[in-house]
Simulated assay, not measured.
Amino acid sequence: MQAPEILAAPIDPAPTPLPAPDQADPATAPATAPPPPPGATPPSPSTQASGPRPRTAPGEGRDEGLQQAVQDVCDVLALALSPEDEAALVEMDGTALATLLDRLKRERRWPLP
């Protein structure tokens, strides 16, 4: 039995160098936004496509994340929150939310008053 012949494409020993940035082909260059007209107001941070979102208060994002975590744990444990419980979550600060989350995970029930 004869071994199969393996066909391979020849390797180019000298690859074509990339053009300098100022000589790039405009058809393949990435699209960029045109410069703003003179006197135009720069875009606000909330309308920019990338970068971190600004927060209005220190720790606000952490508190929202902890509120969501408490709600998620309650969902997993099939604990229904009353409207009063949900309102209380919004009023809690990060420390209280973290304590509540730890208690929920440990006791697996909604804390009684």
Results as ranks from 00 to 15, higher is better:
A29E: 09
A27I: 05
E60Q: 15
Q68H: 08
D12A: 02
G39P: 03
E60A: 15
P34Y: 02
A40R: 09
R62L: 14
A80T: 13
Q2E: 13
P45S: 02
P83H: 11
R109L: 13
A98R: 03
R103N: 12
D72K: 13
A49F: 01
P113R: 09
T16L: 10
P111C: 06
A3T: 12
C74T: 14
A31C: 01
S46T: 13
L112I: 04
P4F: 14
A57E: 13
E64W: 12
P35A: 14
P43G: 10
R55C: 08
M1C: 11
M92T: 03
R109P: 02
P21S: 00
M1P: 13
D75F: 05
T47H: 01
P17R: 01
T47D: 01
A69H: 02
Q2D: 10
A24T: 09
A24E: 11
P52M: 03
T28S: 05
T32P: 00
P35V: 10
D93L: 02
T47L: 12
P30F: 08
D85V: 00
A96V: 04
A80Q: 15
G39N: 08
A80M: 10
E91R: 15
K105L: 11
T99G: 02
E107K: 06
P34C: 03
D93F: 04
L89N: 04
A96S: 07
L81P: 03
L77K: 04
D63Y: 00
P34M: 00
G59Q: 04
L100V: 02
P10Q: 11
V90W: 10
L79D: 00
R108S: 08
W110T: 03
P83C: 08
M92Y: 08
P37R: 06
